[in-house]
Amino acid sequence: MSSVVGDGTSRTGRPVREAPWAEAVFPVALTALGVFTIVDATRIFVPGSANTLGPRAFPYAVGALLVAVGVVLVIGLARGHRGDAEDSEDVDSGVGTDWPTVAKLTGSFAALVVLIEPLGWPVAATVLFGGTAWSLGARPWWRPMLVGAVLAVVVHVVFTQMLGLFLPAGPLDGVRFFG
């Protein structure tokens, strides 16, 4: 008698630590953003009256804050103060970043941006929903597409007909219930 009992979940695994430089990207970007803010703020035109606070002062302050906090964070990182990734019900803290999935998801999103105006919301949203669900592992591919199509059409009709919001209908323009 043998038994194979696999758990399949790794809820107890210690969080995977990525290279320290990955974590430094954000603070460095903050510092860069701060420098940019200060530099760009010098190009803001200041009208007359000198004794009041002009349109540059606040951007300067924000830029300085960005630089300061970026530097503090980088120093902190160097000293080993690392951030803990946020907990979430659906996140497995024991695995590394799954870049292919993120890329597929980005592709689905890009498809929506490209398709929404020529082909309309129903088609574009179907592609977004189907593509995202597929990249996250829904199989076979036509199942999320079908669910997405139903959802996209229902949302389209409810939002354009009942709530009066604008959504492009694409080739369906002029068809009853689609706008």
């Binding site: 929903f129 996250l136 959802l151 996209a152 959504l167």
Partner: peptide, 18 residues
């Protein structure tokens, strides 16, 4: 989860577009 997060993204896109 795939359907759930696909739904979230669809509504997010809807919200920002509209």
């Amino acid at each position: 989860r795939p359907y759930l997060y696909a739904g979230i993204l669809t509504f997010a896109a809807l919200g920002s577009y509209s």
